[in-house]
């Protein structure tokens, strides 16, 4: 029997880009442009869907390199202000497990000629962390990602 639990987290990530807000926004609004960066660390991407309007949905799935587990991302857009702001909710599934429900707010703030991008995620992380297999998988995955991100830094 699965032990039920929920954990809540809020975090913010910021980046400054030389590109103007309109170009940065376009990279989120255009399906082809978004596919160039958003899901690119997954392989075997399966027919992404994207309906970029308030009330519209986005679906993306793929497997991470090597481990074969299907990751699914399903989003629902709530607020779209061109070149200024996006708010969407999204679900994440790992195989059959529903692992999180999050609200993401993306703000495109002018910074000189460029853009200060502020991404805030408010998430509810769901149960399914408690079997030893996924725990070890999680640790290895974390360390790998941590290492990659530090090397990239």
């Amino acid at each position: 029997m699965t032990e039920r639990n929920t954990v809540h987290a809020v975090f913010t990530i910021e980046r400054t880009y030389a590109a103007a807000p309109a170009r940065v926004f376009a990279a989120w609004a255009d399906k082809e442009a978004k596919s160039r960066w958003f899901g690119a660390d997954k392989s075997a991407e399966r027919q992404p869907e994207m309906d970029f309007r308030v009330g519209g949905r986005e679906r993306l799935s793929g497997t991470w390199h090597g481990d074969g587990v299907l990751v699914r991302f399903e989003a629902h857009y709530f607020d779209i202000l061109p070149n200024e702001r996006l708010v969407y909710a999204y679900d994440m599934y790992l195989g059959d497990q529903h692992i999180s429900v999050s609200l993401a707010t993306v703000e495109f703030r002018p910074a000189g000629a460029g853009t200060r991008l502020v991404v805030t995620e408010q998430g509810t992380f769901l149960d399914g962390y408690d079997d030893a297999g996924s725990r070890e998988h999680g640790t290895g995955w974390l360390l790998e990602k941590l290492g990659n991100s530090l090397e990239a830094a």
Binding site: A27, S100, G138, K145
Partner: peptide, 26 residues
Amino acid sequence: LSLAEQWINARRIDWQRKLDRLGDYL
């Protein structure tokens, strides 16, 4: 790390990598 911290942190790192790639794309 607690398992929840692992996942949350993995999500944060996933975002950081996405936003780095967005920068490369731009």
